[in-house]
Design a binder for these strands. Structure first.
Lengths: 192, 192
DNA sequence: GTCTATAGTGCGATAGAC
DNA sequence: GTCTATCGCACTATAGAC
């Protein structure tokens, strides 16, 4: 029963896409309803706490998508440098190919809500920490020491987040490809 | 006559601060008027094209502040690594000390408006390119070759932008300090 | 240059029928 | 679970007095 799409999931998927493109403040509940084609009256049935609840679940969905994708791309390569090169090449392709950036970059929501919606800020903080942990874990798999891996994990998270913003602004994936090269270099040298 | 603050400047300074904290969509004209204490009727006199015009000038103000600060911090050091360490240490201090992040990070406005307000997106793209150019120029001053400097310039821009998002989300400057260390390493190795 | 008043729209949220 | 109607509010923007 995996293909089954209930109303709640449809709302959530549309909301996730819109939040990433337009941000939390730029996306209205009306627009979510219209574009999802979901029944208009159902939104407060599925999300009793309104917009903020939708956003929290949307963040959780982005987290799941990114972590799964990253974990898959980063595994089974012959070095950390090669793993992240492969991963970032896939990320760059997303920015080139689609206007849709499903599952990428929660930086927009994070910076919008950091000063104004504590619960959303906290959700984003947890996701960023998950990213760092994932990257650090991958690095340790490729032989990095824990301390070094954690230090570089946060650097990778920052680089990728920043490169996504540049790519969104430039409307193509080239910034991601450029940082991929430098990251590869950084990983190669830290390995020694 | 430098200390003279006219109404237009007051509006612009308040708008710049609010846009950085809450984003373009999260900041209303009413709030700008209230917090600036500027005369309520004057906003469409000084900015006939409304909110978008204020934002464009605010972006231009952020650009000026960041470029001036960065140029000052990055000059006259004995190596590129040392220059960026000094610069990023100052940036990190801003996130630690103040709740106000004047002149930093246009990434929020950039990602909010990339799909929806073409003129704002374009303004942000130009600022990012200025950052890259500045960083590349600094690197060349410290002996990097042009091609390499441009490649690393975009990487630095991405790292800093991403680290600012993490710092805003975590509500302290530690992510910036962490990437500073890795950047320093990257610069040292590229130099050879 | 400044101020008031208000038009016109869209928002998030609620109540209640079905 | 769904739908309609509507409340109250905030927003951008404009018109016109001073």
């Amino acid at each position: 029963m995996k293909g089954k799409q209930n109303t709640k999931d449809i709302i959530l998927q549309t909301a996730t896409r819109l939040f990433q493109r337009q941000g939390y403040n730029g996306t209205g509940l009306n627009q979510i309803i219209e574009e999802s084609g979901a029944p208009k009256g159902s939104i407060y049935y599925h999300f009793p706490n309104g917009k903020e609840e939708i956003a929290i679940e949307a963040i959780s969905m982005m987290r799941k998508l990114v972590l799964e994708g990253a974990e898959k791309d980063l595994s089974g390569k012959s070095s950390a440098a090669e793993a992240f090169e492969y991963y970032l090449d896939n990320v760059a392709a997303i920015f080139d190919a689609r206007e849709c950036i499903d599952g990428l970059s929660i930086g927009l929501i994070a910076s919008e809500t950091a000063f104004t919606h504590e619960r959303l800020r906290y959700s984003c903080e947890m996701v960023f920490k998950d990213f760092q942990t994932l990257y650090a874990g991958i690095l340790m798999q490729y032989g990095f020491k824990r301390e070094s891996a954690e230090e570089i994990g946060i650097t990778i998270a920052a680089m990728i987040e920043g490169a996504c913003i540049l790519s969104i602004t430039y409307q193509n994936g080239s910034p991601i490809r450029r940082i991929a090269k430098q990251l590869s270099l950084l990983l190669t040298m830290n390995q020694e």
